[in-house]
Design a protein around this nucleic acid. Structure first.
Lengths: 225, 225
DNA sequence: CCAGAACGTAAGGATTTCGTCAGGGACTCC
DNA sequence: GGAGTCCCTGACGAAATCCTTACGTTCTGG
């Protein structure tokens, strides 16, 4: 059974989460602050972590750091609307996904499902298959379903690879810029827009309504297969 | 039993790796720095090497060099998210695969399985057939479909062999230069241009519109059959 | 509903990378 | 010693890629 660790200090929200998660056959563990969250992590080895950023004791991203030091467990962050900065920090620290409060329980459950699926043993094949194209990371090649090859420039490929390696997860603009152009270009978000547009022109069936390379306004981009 | 050499200086991570690998019936050896890693290599002859790039003494890619000088053992590299450059260097140095920290243990185990499988004595497909010529890797010979033989100089052959062994995959200019001329010629891309041109003159039906030896500008070359 | 921010798109010049030719030096083999 | 082969090197036009500018569109908070 999939184990979920809920880290939150609002009793009402915790109760709602526990009920709903149990109803969907998840095993639920609770921690009311960051310190006990880290303890529980070590003891229970959950498959998914739901982490509220507004904890009483430790800063949320520090909790993430503490977990990421030794575990790749998927982390879903809960954040209030006025915690934009904390949210970005959390994602950069290694969170996988985020949900803004208030949220629909269905949305959260969907994200938990996705996160749990990611946690499963990855297959050896580093090929990413979608309805429209296949990305072969080992060969550095992309082929459309109709057999035609997609020709990518070095920068386009770096960008696609960075997104696909974190597929399903949000990748912040900062992280992308740092990885591809270097730390001193972290603020040059325009570079991203240009190259994301080029990628979409080459990959998306309808580039102006992107299906695979999604924009998360203010945060970054997300590749969804 | 498959023997795995873990090279890492973080005790916590090493402990986790040892426990998990032993649980999956691997024989585990540990080295905490690059120097002792090379010693262990010579002593234990492991079937797979897991190598963290952030070692205290030697640069990770130098360790790979030291191993690749005499062994073809599969090497899986562990790298932090902000070590993109080191990662590329490591792969060019001859690493087989890499995992970005933090990682799921399941993912790593899957990659170890894949690496161990690759390490097994695999029978080589000795001949590569195209519409226009046949390349016999074992015999070091190329024959055109009309029966005539293609005479290749030693350097031309090394280049063709490097490309054909990775057929379908992109081979970076760095890797080719390193393999054929040595690490100190990594920046001499001009050498490649000259010899690629010669190969195309001898092999391609229309050398100025290459069909088999394709250029990927800014990255390298790719042989497509 | 509006202003400002963030995003998407197109196009052109700057820069890098590539292809090609040709010639000289080092080496081998007769 | 001469012929031949092979590799390295330089020069230059062609091609590909990247950066930048400009402007229109969408999103967001008040």
């Amino acid at each position: 059974m999939t184990k979920v660790l809920v880290v939150d200090d609002e009793p009402a929200l915790v109760r709602a989460l526990r009920v709903n998660l149990k109803a969907h056959d998840y095993d639920v563990a609770i921690a009311y602050d960051g310190r006990s969250a880290l303890t529980r992590m070590a003891q229970d080895h959950p498959d998914v972590v739901i982490l509220d950023l507004g904890l009483p004791d430790i800063d949320g991203s520090q909790v993430i750091d503490g977990i990421r030091g030794w575990s790749g467990v998927p982390i879903i962050v809960l954040s209030a609307r006025d915690q934009e900065r904390e949210k970005v920090t959390a994602l950069d620290a290694g969170a996988d996904d985020y949900v803004t409060k208030p949220f629909g329980m269905d949305e959260l459950l969907a994200r938990v499902r996705a996160a749990a699926r990611r946690g499963q043993p990855n297959e050896d094949e580093p090929a990413v298959v979608t309805d429209d194209f296949v990305i072969d990371l080992a060969a550095t090649a992309v082929r459309r379903t109709d057999g035609s090859e997609v020709r990518l420039t070095p920068t386009e490929w770096q960008l696609l690879e960075a997104l696909v390696r974190e597929r399903g997860r949000l990748v912040t603009s900062q992280l992308l810029l740092r990885q591809i152009w270097g730390p001193q270009y972290e603020r040059e978000r325009h570079y991203l827009r240009v190259f994301v547009a080029q990628l979409r022109r080459k990959l998306e069936p309808d580039p102006s309504n992107p299906r695979y390379i999604r924009t998360e306004a203010g945060m970054g981009y997300r590749f969804v297969g």
